[in-house]
Write a protein that binds this DNA or RNA. Structure first.
Length: 830
RNA sequence: GGGCGGGUGGCGGAACUGGCAGACGCGCUGGACUUAGGAUCCAGAGCCGCAAGGCGUGAGGGUUCGAGCCCCUCCCCGCCCACCA
């Protein structure tokens, strides 16, 4: 095949995309005998057109998937669409278009763009969560989990988004505002469905230790989010009353230093305990706190404020009476809504005590150093130490005391060791239309009745009136609402709430295993082969929501006997953001949005892909740069031209390689070293950028080498074939074209995408001559070429012969010579 | 306040376990080829200096023959969490 003179991606890319598709190269399961690899990128939420962030994730995953296929694995690399959810519905409210129509349109455009970027997806496995064939299994899981008590109905305080008019999860609330729409979030008493994720808290926490291939910052965030805190609950009797105030503390060892107790303003006992004399003051304070928003009132910057209730609590360990206060810094939602204050050993309590003149008593002394003295205390001593002034516990270490005192509280019936969690159950019902209907029927006689499994799916009707206000839109669709009770057959009404979108994304990776199965969510036999996912690529913004929920869900699926392991994903790769050319987040507001489509039209998919991979390692943010992109286009064109220029080498026989010497041998070394470097960049830490840099160097070396002999030509051919093959994961279209041009008819009918990944010869990678740095007193004074095996004497002789070295050694006394084989020789003089 | 990352030329970024700092690319400069060059190929370049040489990885100190890398003190930037008892 004779090559086109110029690199014109537009003329080759769609052709190869067609060839891959026809050959079914990217179908999983084609190599049943081979070891399997599952590469997954977070599926997109098609709320608009595809953007650069998407292009980056899929390019990273695709490079890996393509590489693994060439390494001989049977690779599963699927794609689908996370189609249900609030953004699509909100957009519908804005412009009146039905969410289904909008979503379908967006999916069509996503598919086209993804195909034009040449991603090696197994399109036969595509899923769309808005299809009843998908969400019926959400309903199936709901019913299974209801049966097992993992799903339950609760009434409680919920986060109500005033913009979306629905309940949203704790994780979706950021600074009192909705993470999705930015509107204010208020608390509302509301009945809702919830997943008992807290029952898995310990297991989810323990599981993190095994996730050694996850970025530490993600596991740390999950650890914090789960927020285990071990301590004790202790009951303080209220003096002159039947009531007790239960406090939670992680520092029960300091309890003998408790000099007051503080309630949250919302604490149920606040009003009751307040003495008549204090009533007006307390009531005014509580009222004022209720009116100030939570951030302002309890944010860290807020001043600590409180009032005395007039009541006293009895420390059960000492019998001592201490005053009960109400203060803004105690949170009703955390712990028991009441704390015992130990000003000597808690900074917050210390500041409060100082402000209101409450006593401070030291009960812990540091293990080493100066003893603390109440009168001179500048700040609380919050570390562990040894107990003093603590009755029978005096002399114990903090750790011993915590164990001893909480056990004692339990024995004597006024407390117990306790564990508190930050993690809350996952309330997942939404008063919205565009979600999975919750398969429950309300019967006047039988109450909430689960829809029988064989009646699934409960299909989402098309004709809902979506207003975004008031009650759930489904409640206004009589044909949906009115049904019969599965138990008694009498008229009944359907649940009109829908499920949170995070339900859809909690198990989709498993649905890809048998996406068309209509008898079960997926085939457990396939799960045994393919799960857990080997590599999962996506944005770090999902660290505590999606990535926690799906770990929870996978555990439930394991208990149901559907998947083999507790953890869904072995290795997590979190990729950085693609910013605008100005370094700011791409946004219409800044007018710095660059869309992938037009860039593919202009430069071709290969250039766009190469840019994504070359700009920085995957986890770093990158700025879009037209100049850099053009540079990568030039690189591909330069690769193209060297192939054209060396067409004469295409037929050189491999047998001639053994005769390669001199520069030809150097080229061969460069080739093999490049294969090694690119391979290493794809294994372990993903360093596509340095791998591509290595390829660029090899191309530069090809330009610098003018072949004269048959052996020279053979060395050039070897390098050209390597360049094409190494380019395959990154710029797959150009790679195919170049590879076929070199190989000609023997490669007819074959595809580089399925060819074995090139091997390298270690012997050729190793250098025979090395450059050794020559230093005098640690300063570089020259360098010498020496055989790899050269010993100290030989290298030293070469080094001493250098003029500059002589100059610096002259007149000095040689103290010592440091010799590092293959690296340097250092003369230490004085 | 806590946790996790970072700070290297004009820019993006390289640098294995302490061993030639600045690979590769962008931008820049010069040359060749050209009617032309914003194409291409070749060459140059950390900074100061004509040179010899000196100085250089956020700041300051230390260990070492030798530090971007290790230790100490500190500054700055990003992300996440945050009166969590």
């Amino acid at each position: 095949m004779s090559m086109n003179e110029r690199y014109e991606p537009q003329s080759i890319e769609s052709r190869w995309q067609g060839r891959w598709r026809e050959a079914g190269v990217f179908q999983a399961g084609r190599r049943p005998a081979a070891e399997e690899r599952y590469v997954l990128e977070m599926f997109p939420y098609p709320s608009g057109a595809m953007h650069m962030g998407h292009a980056r994730v899929y390019t990273i995953g695709d490079a890996l998937a393509r590489y693994l296929r060439m390494k001989g694995f049977d690779v599963l690399h699927p794609i689908g669409f996370d189609a249900l959810g609030l953004p699509a519905e909100n957009a519908a409210i804005k412009d009146g278009k039905h969410p289904r129509a909008r979503t379908e349109e967006n999916i069509v455009s996503f598919r086209a763009e993804m195909k034009s970027l040449g991603y090696a997806f197994d399109w036969d496995r595509e899923i769309v969560t808005a299809d009843p064939s998908y969400y019926r299994w959400n309903q199936w899981f709901f019913l299974k989990m209801l049966e097992k008590g993992i799903v339950y109905r609760r009434t409680g305080k919920a986060n109500w988004c005033t913009g979306c008019n629905t309940v949203i999860a704790n994780e979706q609330v950021v600074d009192e505002t909705c993470e999705r729409c930015g509107s204010k979030v208020v608390e509302k008493q509301i009945p809702e469905w919830a997943f008992r994720i807290t029952a898995y808290a310990q297991d989810l926490l323990d599981g993190l230790d095994g996730l050694t291939e996850w970025p530490e910052r993600v596991t740390t965030m999950q650890r914090n989010w789960i927020g285990k805190s071990e301590g004790a609950e202790v009951d303080f009797a209220v003096a002159g009353s039947e009531r007790t105030v239960k406090v939670f503390t992680t520092r029960v060892d300091t309890i003998h230093g408790c000099t007051y107790v503080v309630l949250a303003p919302e604490h149920p006992l606040t009003a009751e305990l307040t003495t008549p004399a204090q009533r007006d003051e307390v009531r005014a304070f509580v009222e004022r706190m209720r009116k100030t928003d939570a951030q302002e009132r309890a944010g860290e910057g807020a001043p600590k404020e409180g009032v005395f209730t007039g009541a006293h609590a009895v420390n059960p360990f000492t019998g001592e009476q201490v005053p009960i206060w109400v203060a803004n810094f105690v949170l009703a939602e955390y712990g028991t809504g009441a704390v015992m204050s130990v000003p000597a050993h808690d900074q917050r309590d210390f500041e409060f005590a100082r402000k209101y003149g409450l006593p401070i008593r030291v009960v812990i002394q540091p293990a080493q150093g100066e003893l603390l003295d109440e009168a001179r205390l500048e700040t609380a001593f919050t570390l562990d130490g040894r107990l003093v002034n603590s009755g029978l516990a005096t002399g114990l270490t903090s750790a011993e005391a915590r164990r001893r005192l909480s056990a004692e509280a339990k024995e004597r019936g006024f407390g117990a060791p306790t564990v508190r969690w930050h993690l809350r159950d996952w309330g997942f019902s939404r008063q919205r239309y565009w979600g999975t209907p919750i398969p429950i029927v309300y019967c006047p006689e039988h109450g909430a009745v689960p829809v029988p499994l064989d009646q699934l799916p409960v299909v989402l009707p098309d004709e809902a009136i979506i207003t975004g206000t008031g009650e759930p839109p489904l409640a206004k669709v009589p044909s949906f609402v009115n049904t019969t009770c599965p138990v008694c057959g009498k008229p009944a009404k359907r649940e009109t709430e829908t499920m949170d979108t995070f339900v859809d994304s909690s198990w989709y990776y498993a649905r890809y295993l048998s996406p068309k199965d209509d008898t079960r969510p997926f085939d457990p036999e396939m799960a045994k082969r393919w799960l857990p996912v080997d590599v999962y690529v996506g944005g770090p913004e999902h660290a505590v929501m999606h990535l926690l929920y799906f770990r929870f869900w996978n555990r439930v699926m394991q208990q149901l006997g559907l998947v083999p392991t507790a953890e869904p994903v072995k290795r997590l790769v979190t990729q950085g953001i693609v910013n605008g050319p100005d370094g700011r987040k791409m946004s219409k507001r800044w007018g710095n949005v660059v869309a992938p489509g037009p860039m593919v039209d202009r430069f071709g998919a290969d250039t766009v892909r190469l840019f994504m991979l070359f700009a920085a390692p995957p986890e770093k943010d990158i700025d879009w740069s037209d100049e850099q992109v053009e540079g990568l286009f030039r690189f591909l064109a330069r690769v193209w031209r060297i192939f054209v220029a060396r067409e004469g080498c295409f037929g050189a026989p491999e047998a001639a390689l053994v005769q390669a010497g001199g520069e030809a041998l150097e080229l061969r070394r460069k080739t093999h070293r490049t294969v090694k470097r690119v391979t290493e960049g794809l294994e372990g830490e993903l360093k596509f950028n340095t791998g591509i840099a290595a390829l660029m160097e090899l191309v530069n070396a090809l330009y610098a080498f003018d072949p004269a002999t048959e052996a020279d030509r053979a060395a050039v051919r070897e390098a050209l074939v390597a360049v094409a093959a190494l380019l395959a994961p990154f710029a797959p279209h150009a790679a195919e074209e170049l590879w076929h041009s070199v190989l000609g008819s023997p490669a007819e009918g074959r595809l580089l995408a399925e060819e074995p990944w090139p091997a390298f010869d270690e012997a050729l990678c190793a250098a025979d001559v090395v450059t050794v740095a020559v230093q005098v007193n640690g300063k570089l004074r020259g360098e010498v070429q020496a055989p790899v095996a050269a010993g100290e004497a030989e290298v030293r002789a070469l080094a001493e012969a250098l003029d500059k070295v002589q100059a610096h050694l002259a007149g000095k006394t040689l103290r010592k010579v440091v010799f590092v084989p293959k690296r340097l020789v250092n003369f230490v003089v004085s």
